[in-house]
Structure formats: C-alpha cells, structure tokens
Design a protein around this nucleic acid. Sequence first.
DNA 1: TTCATTTTTTACCAATTCGCATAAAAATAT
DNA 2: ATATTTTTATGCGAATTGGTAAAAAATGAA
Lengths: 207, 207
Amino acid sequence: MKTETKRGRPRKFDEDVTLDRVMQVFWRNGYAATSLDQIAEATGLNRPSLYAAFGSKKDMYLNVISRFADRMHVYLAEAGHQTAGANPRLKAILTAAIDLYTGQTDLTDAPYGCLAISTLQTESPRDAEFKEALTVVIARMDKGFASLIRHETRGSMTEQEVCTAAQHLALILHGLSIRARAGETPDVLKRLAESAVDKIIPLSNGN
Amino acid sequence: MKTETKRGRPRKFDEDVTLDRVMQVFWRNGYAATSLDQIAEATGLNRPSLYAAFGSKKDMYLNVISRFADRMHVYLAEAGHQTAGANPRLKAILTAAIDLYTGQTDLTDAPYGCLAISTLQTESPRDAEFKEALTVVIARMDKGFASLIRHETRGSMTEQEVCTAAQHLALILHGLSIRARAGETPDVLKRLAESAVDKIIPLSNGN
DNA sequence: TTCATTTTTTACCAATTCGCATAAAAATAT
DNA sequence: ATATTTTTATGCGAATTGGTAAAAAATGAA
C-alpha cells in the first residue's frame, strides 16, 4: 500500500519544484501584483492546472508562505548549530538570514528579503487570514530566538529579559530584511548585524 | 501679485485634504492593491479630476510617499526636541513613531505602520523609481538618527560608532513598523523600544 | 479494444483595471 | 451678452484580472 499505481493521465510537473517557482514569483512581486498568468508562465503550467493542483491564488500564496517559513526555520536552525554560545550562535543565525535575504542561498538567487516581511505584511490590513499568518510567522521567530537565548544563558537572565532580547533580535532581523530588499549588500548588513548582537547579547555574558 | 484671481471653474476640493485621503488608501492597501476607483471614492473626486490634478497612479503614490516622509520627519523631530540627552531623545522619538504607526496621531487613525516600510518596500523589486525612493527614505532615517547621536554625544563616540548606532535604531524602527501593522499594541511596542534604546545608547553614556 | 480516470488544453466569462476623449458646467474677462 | 478658461462629469475602450466549463489527451484497468 505504498505507491498504488495512479490512474489517469500522469502529471508532467513536479509539485515541489513548481511550488518553489510559485514562491519566487510572489517573492518578487508580492501578493497583489502577482497575476496567475505570471505564475503560469513561471511554472510552465496553465491556469486550470494550477488551480486543480494548488487551489486559488490566495491558497497558493498561503501555501508558499508556510513553505517559506518552514524552510527558513530549518535553514536558520542548522546555521545556529554550527557554533556554541548565545552570542556566536545568534551571529551565525543573523548572518545566515542575511545570506538568505540577499539571494546567497539555495532558496533563491534574488535579494528580496524575507518573503513574509516583504509581502505578507503589506496585505495584512485587508485580509484577516493574512494578518493571522503574519502574526504567526513573527511569533515563530520570537520563540526561536527566545529558546536559543534561554538555553544558552541558563539562569543568568530572567525569562522577561530573555523574551525582550528575543524580540529585539527579531526587530533587527526584520529591519535587515527591509534593507536587503532595498538593495543593501550582504557584507554591510552582516557588519551591522554582528554589532547589533554584541549590544543585545554581549559575549561577556558568561558564554 | 499674490492671488491673481484665477480664471475658469473653481475647484471644489482642497488639494491638501485630498492628498491626505489618497495617502490613507495607499497606506491601507499598498500600491498594487489600490485602485483609482477606491481613491476616487475616498476623495470624492472622479478619476479624470484626479488625473488632472495629481497625474497617474504612480505619480500620486510617489507624491504621497514624499509627503509622508516630510510629515514624519517634522513630527519625529518635534518629539525629539522635548527632552535632552541622546538616550531620552531617542526614546521620545521611537515612542512618537510608535504612536504614529499605531494610529495615535493626527496623521492617521489606522495602525498600519510606516507607509514607506509597509508598502513601498514591497514594490521595490519591480520598479527602479520605487526602489530609489525606498533607499532615499531609509537613508533619511539613518541620517536623522546619526545627527542626533553625533550632536548629543559630542566626542564620546567615533563617527563609525555613531553611524552604526544610527542604523541599529533605524533597524529597530522598521521592525516596530512591521509589528504595528501586524497588530501589536502601542504599549508593548513602547516597552520594547525603550529597552532597545537602553542597549544601543545607554543612559550612562555621559548624558 | 473499450472503459474509467486523471491531467492538460483551449476557450470563454464577467468583472475590474487605468487612462483618456469628449462634453457639460462654472467661473472670469471683455 | 459673448468669449475664454478651467474643472467636473459621462462614458468609452483596450487590456488584464481570477476563475471555470468543456473538450482533448494520456494513462491504467477490464
């Protein structure tokens, strides 16, 4: 009961690579400015096939947003595990995020920042689902930073201080996304990020 | 030679209040999702009148962006002059920005963050003029923070440190804009902002 | 071969988009 | 009054939008 041979005409596209292409289009244009024709062109599928496979434009967008959030999460977590100590780990994570935001990773070639920050945010006042998705993404980043800091500074910071520092880092991260989309270079952003981490979670913090 | 009585049919709208209404529509929807019909409805003008007075949709948007940047600049500068010392002045500025971002000022009732960060950013990859306008806005914020810090900490910080700290504050500001648009409350944001300032420009810095 | 199933393709739909051309209206100048 | 000038109002038009209906194609099952 693994792969029961599928009936019917076989698909001539791979779902994963197609979704990746959909993601690129939304990443560049945002939600409102992206047309299904552009997506069709970028994926090689035509509109009815897209709709049959992935639902409406909104469905596709939300699909791609959570896909992006998942990918970003594992990518940053991976980057954060190459070192030890709060300060170095946070620097590694921000550095990796900057690579992602400036098109230096496998996820994208384009320097369009964070997909959620760059595009979801804009739509949030008009659509409650989008707004909810945005707060979820933001909360996820906060939690990620908080758990790292909590773990690495066991005891030396109150829970309150941990959460505040985590949100500081998320603020910084979002600011970096905006600057990346504005065209700032990775190295400038990385210098900025490193000095920011040094002020928020100094190396001297017992790590 | 002040107001030479104008010929022709008189306008029945005020240019300033109309532009303010145009700004609200773009602020909520962003550029791409805003239609001229929506603007026409919000302003009470019809499309040909809008076009005659303010040009194309893009013209209107860029017009409103620089209008916003100017207003924001004077509003924040004013707020920053109610106190003395780098740390208190920066806190006052960020607090004022949060009021603006969350709809607590005369500029808008709506909690849609910073017009430029929230909407211009999204469009920047598709249009060189938008991208340029975005970098100009960002640079303006950097410079504003830098000149304040430079002035208040005369000598105690290198020019390099001043610029870096200024960019840190701008990163924070942009992050605050995003969270405001995501629906975060003013008081939470203000606590966050104040503690961030304390880490970037501590009170103990001789002020 | 014939049928059932799934995907692809073509074509269409109603609605909306931005911009403009043209006409009507409202004021001043002569 | 009549003409001139400026703004407003009506309405068109070509293009694009998201979505779908219907037919054609490609596979496995019988």
